[in-house]
């Protein structure tokens, strides 16, 4: 269709392959997470990402005839979109800032520091985060002591610490 003709063999539809793939990613992730009744959040994120990637590959194979560069651009675009979605989902799942904000927004009178502290007590926060890490296998228990299980979060922690040193000049905000 001339209306959608882009450049050469490519139509404007092909530009949106990464967005269609993202749609498949989101759909798969939400369905899997709900089917597991709220368990295995990270696994559902990864599975959704792979589902979307599979969709993108099919769209690229059976869609317009593109050069390698176009496939790379679409792949990178899908990767960036998936990463943005991962953050959106994680922020709703575990961001303290957003949760505190929602607690304050839920009341017209606002909240005092004590009232916030009753809900977001340091020990309760520690217990919930600790439990989550044990369930995901990132922490393992042996003879009453806890150790690193999977190394994936250590890698993330080291990357973030490195970037923090470059931008902030320190390893921790509490230093």
């Amino acid at each position: 269709m001339a209306l959608f003709q882009g450049v050469g063999n490519l139509s404007y539809f092909s530009l949106f392959n990464p967005i269609f793939a993202l749609g498949l990613n989101v759909f798969a992730q939400v369905v899997l997470f709900r089917a597991r009744r709220g368990d295995h959040f990270v696994r559902s994120i990864l599975e959704g990402c792979f589902a979307g990637a599979g969709g993108l590959v099919l769209l690229e194979i059976f869609g317009d005839r593109e050069g390698v560069a176009s496939h790379v651009v679409n792949g990178l675009t899908y990767g960036a979109l998936s990463y943005c979605y991962f953050h959106l989902a994680c922020l709703g799942q575990s961001s303290i800032r957003i949760r505190i904000y929602s607690e304050i927004a839920a009341t017209s009178r606002g909240l005092s520091l004590e009232e916030i502290g009753q809900v977001y007590d340091g020990r309760a926060l520690a217990k919930i985060r600790f439990q989550r890490l044990i369930e995901s296998g990132d922490i393992i228990e042996r003879d009453g002591r806890y150790f690193i299980g999977r190394k994936r979060l250590i890698l993330v922690a080291n990357v973030i610490a490195g970037i923090k040193r470059i931008i902030m000049g320190r390893k921790s905000q509490f230093d």
Binding site: I96, D138, Y146, I148, I160, Q173
Partner: peptide
């Protein structure tokens, strides 16, 4: 990057304390 995450901070702490591990 700007704010410390409790989860990431905890993993750093465990990494610093390995191989002895930590109690709950």
């Amino acid at each position: 990057i700007g704010a410390d995450s409790p989860t990431i901070s905890l993993m750093h702490f465990l990494g610093d304390k390995s191989p002895d591990g930590v109690t709950a």
